[in-house]
Design a binder for these strands. Structure first.
Lengths: 251, 251
DNA sequence: TATTTGTGATAGTATTACTATCATTTTCAA
DNA sequence: TTGAAAATGATAGTAATACTATCACAAATA
């Protein structure tokens, strides 16, 4: 079974035994696949073991040492392959970063769609969304080679670098940031559901998204910029954002 | 006359004629000097022509080509000096970026102090502050070698890279971000003047500061993330932020 | 089984990010 | 005004980065 909803493909695999062809009970799994813009890569990393290793190990390495010190050479050594092989998948490390963040936004949009599915009251929906944006994610077993928890932290610390470049307009023309914009659109329309007369739904949406991450980063690294330096708790960021958002739209 | 207020030094120079020693009328100038953390440089760039050239040309080059493609070699060529000479002033380009952003925050704090000087009503003060944060600055003649207008745009597009690094905590220990934190403190206390019971003054302050820049960047580069993509006008960002801030603190 | 496709191994280049040395010029203090 | 100290320029060199190219071999596929 395959379900496709806009950018996300949900596959229900029935793993079968290689020899007997009988379905294996415990290997029946729901598998999430985020549809990626193919202009982001030279060869689809999902299509091979090496590709999946590139994603998996790049997440680990960027998380560990930061994007600046991350190189394809180090990644190759980490995986046990060669630099040249990695260049067959990604043109350069910038594209890889954009790929990773785009994947994250796509994944998050699915989480939001999934977790606000049956909720009718828009304000409740919006609260769920904010919570998802702020919260540390657990590693999602539905997506084999991606560690969402690490990726979340990468998006916090390095995500902005994906678009804070001179090529942002070119990249945008190639729709590299579509998942981010889609997410922003989804959040914006929930805001409008809450208050159809609110004037800045998209700007408020991007503010929530950015601040969910920046306040977290500040809290942990430059605590004087926040009011949560002592507690360092996500729930405080959550309270702040809820207060900010709902006082704006319920005026 | 020299006036010193926390981080800023205001010098009133009476330029005198070299020969007659009579003060020259039209050359009487107010000169602003931002006090910089000396751990940011190896040799103080304010102390020499070459140093001032480094600041002036680095602002031009980073603005023109972006921080990623900016190198000390290109800067040296632009100035007409050598790479080695530049390394005598700054350890590396990261320190230079931190220097430039720190300078900007210091300068902005002075602008805020100056322009809210005689205002009594806190809300009016806060509005002024938001306006200063959002507005394109005119090149300030009081600061010879710094083009504040270009620097403002650099801070918008590259400013976050000053702290989004693995060394952020080390840099913070050396007080590299003090000007930013001070500014945030100033804005936070104006917020508290408006409403002493508001719970998140510092987080709201950093939100205003970051969003004043990010919404501007989005508006011009990723307009789908804002509600101002059509107009592309600063006054719209201003309205959004005013709405956001005052509905939060006047609840 | 022949052919395409992907990977590994190796090599090579231009640029970046520095460090080092030494001669020359400028500054400043006695 | 002179003489030492400090700053700059000129040049060279190194290790790492960010790639590109080539060829042999293995695996998948038709």
């Amino acid at each position: 079974m395959i379900v496709i909803l806009s950018q996300i493909i949900v596959k229900l695999f029935s793993f079968a035994d290689r020899n007997t062809q009988k379905p294996l009970k415990d290997m029946k799994k729901l598998q999430l696949q985020i549809k990626m813009n193919s202009a982001l890569f030279l060869r689809n990393p999902e299509s091979s073991e090496l590709g999946k290793n590139i994603i998996m190990h790049s997440i680990q390495l960027i998380h560990k040492n930061g994007f600046e010190s991350f190189t394809f050479k180090k990644l190759a050594e980490d995986i046990g392959t060669t630099e040249a092989s990695i260049y067959r998948y990604f043109e350069n490390k910038h594209k890889l970063l954009v790929y990773l963040t785009a994947w994250y936004w796509g994944w998050l949009e699915f989480q939001i769609a999934y977790s606000t599915n049956n909720i009718i009251v828009p304000a409740t929906k919006l609260k769920r969304v904010i919570k998802l944006l702020v919260s540390t994610v657990e590693d999602d077993e539905q997506t084999g080679y991606v560690n969402e928890s690490l990726l979340h932290q990468i998006v916090i610390a390095e995500g902005s670098k994906a678009y804070l470049t001179k090529q942002v307009s070119d990249d945008n023309k190639q729709h590299f940031f579509k998942p981010y914009k889609d997410l922003c659109g989804v959040v914006g329309s929930i805001i409008l559901e809450c208050n159809p007369r609110y004037k800045y739904p998209k700007s408020l949406a991007s503010t929530i998204i950015e601040m969910a991450h920046f306040q977290n980063f500040f809290m942990n690294n430059l605590p004087a910029l926040t009011d949560f330096g002592d507690s360092k708790e996500e729930k405080d960021v959550l309270s702040f954002l809820n207060d900010l958002v709902f006082s704006s739209i319920r005026k």
